[in-house]
């Protein structure tokens, strides 16, 4: 079973990298980009076969390591 974790900065946390990307897009002539937020995607190969148990385990992983919940939020997809 696979899980995919999306980690994004929380709303309201300034994202300097996203801002730099937005400026670069503007410089390339891509108008109409109001905002850019940059995050990360983490894919996990799990031995667990029960989706609910897998989700529970991955949530623990997010809380303990994969996301810094002071500044980041996360979403879990079980695939």
């Amino acid at each position: 079973m696979k899980a995919r974790v999306h980690v994004m900065l929380k709303n309201g946390v300034l994202d300097p990298q996203g801002e730099a990307v937005r400026h670069a897009l503007g410089a390339l002539g891509f108008d109409g980009v109001d905002g850019v937020r940059q995050g990360k995607v983490i894919e996990l190969d799990l031995t667990e076969s029960d989706p609910e148990a897998a989700r529970h385990n991955v949530m623990q992983m997010c809380e303990k390591l994969l996301a810094n919940t002071v500044i980041e939020s996360y979403q879990i997809e079980i695939l």
Binding site: V13, L14, P16
Partner: peptide, 10 residues
């Protein structure tokens, strides 16, 4: 408390 993020000027 808090976190250290990328410098505001990148």
């Amino acid at each position: 408390p808090g976190a250290l993020m990328r410098n505001a000027g990148i």
